[in-house]
Design a protein around this nucleic acid. Structure first.
Lengths: 138, 138
DNA sequence: ACAAAGATACAACATTGTTGCGTTTAACAA
DNA sequence: TTGTTAAACGCAACAATGTTGTATCTTTGT
């Protein structure tokens, strides 16, 4: 499906900013920070605040998921198709390289098992494994 | 062991700021943000930058561990005794309440199992489960 | 008690993220 | 296609979090 229809399907109006951001994230195995994305857009016109709002809108629409790196910075990646129907079930882990600072989505079957104390209700999960990636370890 | 000796054992010089921060964290099941701690110290004199540096020093010394909430804010809690001997093995999960914003250390046997791609080397882990805590769910 | 090393406090700054508001653009219906 | 309305954009201003440099003060070890 093309970007325009993906946006429409989520009830998002189709604007050039949103198309640009979608295209930037599409097909990537990495989650990008605001700084990363601003860098990507440096030749085109892309307002910093607009970028924040586009990413927030995308997250609320279930189009992207947000993951926080150990430095407290948000990174965004497109959700897999499975998230298309309303609720995030993106509980996959992420790997953040301490050397190149890339944030990898671990699509493999990483899974968390835990005992939550009685009365605690889970809404979601943020898991970041940090270390050195393949390239930086070599 | 008293605070003074804990600091000495880690090779940290004993200062009033460090003792204050240690006492503030001691015996707590919650991880506190800088803002939380500044609030605790509002009657005493505690410089904001000094607090940052004390917490950084504590973390490097393996005395506390840091966990990032979904908003990107760092929270700190004392490590269990097991961490005393040089390397963090604080891979326990944390629970962040979306309503009262408290960060709970889940000392229970929460555990992560995942397959890391070949060549990736793990150094540590940041896991935050978010939702509503017992008090806020009632 | 003294010298050296380390910690503190202040200012200045960097980065990340939010809010308000006037202007522009997209959606939809006539 | 055009006009109306609602939404998105872009700018300015601001807030929170965190870092760096440096002079002063405190701790440590002799």
């Amino acid at each position: 499906m093309d970007a325009t229809n993906v946006l429409k399907e989520r009830g998002l109006s189709v604007t050039s900013s949103r198309l640009q951001v979608y295209e930037a994230l599409h097909g990537e195995a990495l989650a990008f920070s605001h700084a990363d994305l601003e860098q990507k857009f440096k030749r085109k016109k892309m307002d910093r605040i607009t970028l924040y709002r586009v990413l927030n809108d995308f997250e609320e629409a279930g189009l992207v998921h947000k993951v926080i790196d150990p430095g407290g910075v948000a990174h965004f990646a497109l959700c897999k198709d499975g998230c298309l129907h309303g609720h995030h079930h993106d509980h996959h882990a992420h790997f953040n390289c301490q050397r190149c600072h890339k944030m990898f989505c671990l699509d493999t079957d990483s899974q968390l098992s835990f005992k939550l104390p009685r009365g605690f209700k889970i809404a979601g999960l943020n898991t970041v494994i940090y270390g050195t990636c393949k390239t930086c370890s070599a």
